[in-house]
């Protein structure tokens, strides 16, 4: 399954790139205009921060959403949301409480035109191992995902490695359930070889995944966070082996969206963020042969 209308690798942007700037000196429409400037049509939103009135946006806001998507040729790709586990002091949420959040987001994502969700799960340790009940509520959400045609995808994010046990657990779950409605968003930060821009917490190791580690996972990946920490003046990302990773994806005929996600310094600086995202898309266009 692919979120793309045509086969191949497509470019997009996550609103994460500009999150400190929204409601300060930028609107959602501004980011759509920048995306149009770059010919990057795929969009990821972080629902909680972007949707006014979340989780119950007004009809007026939704009408505006559809109008803006139409005007700027935006393809809603991925709806970023969280399945909270820590809402009460002293206990984690149970299956029913988790499922309630998830079903609401599935319906809202689908209504807004998204075909994927970045389903962020609660974690229980420093390796970001998901909460123990994830299989129970995800399994029960699968019929809703199928009905509303959205794929739930946990984000695989550093410090997780693509060969870690949790990935094997996810694959085992997908194959056991024989579902197309659960997969991964692989965040390219897992390939980072230089921690300079990451603000790595003390005691954490970099330990990057190898580009080829993505190969067995590609059938389950519907879109990726094309993470970048430092785009230099030669339009190269200095910390992630982009060319190797994307070439592997091309060689394996992967279909989907690469969604720019800037996680370097100076995120509060509009000009810096603009320069970084534009450099990123020059690089992606070159690699993709556009």
């Amino acid at each position: 399954m692919s979120t793309s209308q045509k086969p191949g690798i497509h470019r997009g942007v996550s609103t994460y790139c500009w999150y400190p700037l929204y409601n300060v000196n930028m609107t959602l429409e501004d980011s759509f205009e920048i995306m149009k400037d770059m010919g990057a049509h795929g969009l990821e939103i972080l629902a909680d921060g972007i949707i006014e009135g979340y989780p119950y946006p007004s009809k007026e806001w939704l009408n505006k959403w559809f109008s803006l998507c139409d005007r700027y040729e935006i393809v809603p790709v991925e709806y970023g949301h969280w399945v909270e586990s820590k809402l009460y002091r002293g206990r984690e949420l149970n299956v029913e409480e988790s499922l309630e959040q998830l079903i609401h987001d599935i319906k809202l994502a689908s209504y807004m035109g998204f075909t994927c969700m970045r389903t962020k799960l609660g974690v229980i340790d420093d390796k970001l191992t998901p909460t123990k009940i994830w299989r129970d509520f995800i399994r029960r959400a699968l019929p809703y995902a199928e009905k509303y045609n959205v794929v739930m995808q946990p984000e695989i994010h550093w410090p997780t490695r693509l060969t870690d046990q949790m990935i094997l657990d996810y694959v085992e779950f997908i194959e056991k359930e024989q579902t197309q409605y659960f997969g991964f968003n692989i965040d390219f930060g897992v390939f980072t070889t230089d921690a300079t821009g990451m603000g790595m917490p003390p005691g954490m190791e970099l330990n990057p995944s190898k580009p080829e580690d993505i190969i067995p996972l590609l059938p389950y990946v519907h879109c990726c966070h094309a993470k970048y920490y430092n785009m230099d003046e030669n339009f190269e990302e200095t910390t992630i082996p982009y060319r190797e990773v994307v070439q592997i994806m091309k060689d394996h005929n992967w279909n989907g969206y690469l969604l720019s996600e800037y996680e370097g310094p100076h995120k509060e600086d509009y000009n810096h963020c603009m320069t970084q995202v534009k450099r990123h898309h020059v690089m992606l266009k070159r690699i993709l042969g556009e």
């Binding site: 972080l46 909680d48 909270e84």
Partner: peptide
């Protein structure tokens, strides 16, 4: 919150 989302109140 200089963030991409606001918390639920209990958080």
């Amino acid at each position: 919150f200089v963030a991409y989302r606001g918390p639920w109140l209990s958080q």
